[in-house]
Design a protein around this nucleic acid. Structure first.
Lengths: 180, 180
DNA sequence: GTCTATATGACGATAGAC
DNA sequence: GTCTATCGTCATATAGAC
């Protein structure tokens, strides 16, 4: 039974947090090391280069996305409602990797984009099962829009909370689509 | 009557194009100067520093956004349908500044974010006049989601064109909301 | 107005001590 | 495993010639 590399995870957490809070450009090796409480050399022992750190983050994304898809399929309120609600920033582990990875995708990182496309396709498939392919697109873009806007908020706490009212409006719209 | 500074506009066009095509990180002063066909020194004559270049881009954004709001209000198919359609990448001057500015907002540029919030609020107001405040949010997020996804595509030509089918689905959803 | 040359500072990464 | 020291590269910006 291999034990968890604690320091390695701490570094990855720091990288994730910096991507979320200050963006890709400021998430430098120096900054990550400092936040994780290690030296730059110490960081580079765990990850030989920055690409390796990104790869580890994308693996975390895939792992959590799988869990999320499962939860969406099993959601008692239905996949669409679950999807809309989960598009709100809630500071869950999944939310954190997702937004962190988004910061990388912004910067023209092809591999990250590929992973995203894959995950989004899975979501779309589950939505389509519930409300059909066309309305699934409407729901999908609503959720994406919600995420998109949350991404551009600095703190990710106060402002995102204010979007709660928006979620109610979106859920009502989804209900209309389901009946239509 | 002051004449247009042609070289200055060429530099700004180059900056905009690089932001769209290769992202914020690669839109360096060197790259902009090269693309605009001037030296770095020549560029810095027109814009004393990078912030000045960004400020000029944001002014262009505000100017074109004003035009867009007007077109949206006057649209014969209705504001909502116009909004959804215009959320597709069409390589118009407005699309170009908007996406270019988005690249800056991603990188935690506060001033850019403020401008965005202002423009989006105006759009939301116009939408609300047509279909009410709640459905306006649904439409708004659908459009944002569309834009968000288009932004992450490299070429901005082929893949964005493939989203045309999605627009049809969204327009149908908007119709349902309008009646609901 | 537009250029070349250069100062200054970060970033990613390597080498090697402990 | 984690550190310090350092190198090469590239970015923004300045100085000053033409």
């Amino acid at each position: 039974m291999p034990r968890k590399p604690v320091a390695r995870d701490a570094v990855l957490d720091a990288f994730e947090a910096l991507l979320i809070e200050v963006g890709e450009r400021a998430a430098t090796l120096d900054a990550v090391a400092k936040r994780a409480g290690v030296s730059k050399g110490g960081l580079l022992y765990h990850f030989p280069n920055k690409e390796a750190m990104i790869a580890a983050l994308l693996e975390r994304l895939d792992r959590l996305a799988e869990v999320e898809i499962g939860a969406m399929k099993a959601a008692p309120e239905g996949a669409s409602a679950f999807f809309i609600k989960s598009s709100l920033w809630a500071d869950t582990p999944m939310d954190r990797v997702f937004v962190a990875a988004t910061r990388l995708a912004e910067v023209a990182h092809e591999e990250t984009r590929r992973r995203f496309a894959g995950i989004q396709q899975q979501w779309l498939d589950v939505l389509a099962e519930e409300i059909g392919p066309d309305h699934a697109k409407a729901v999908r873009y609503m959720g994406d829009g919600l995420y998109f806007n949350a991404m551009f908020e600095s703190g990710h706490g106060e402002a995102a909370a204010a979007r709660q009212a928006d979620v109610e409006a979106l859920l009502a719209a989804v209900e209309l689509l389901r009946k239509g």
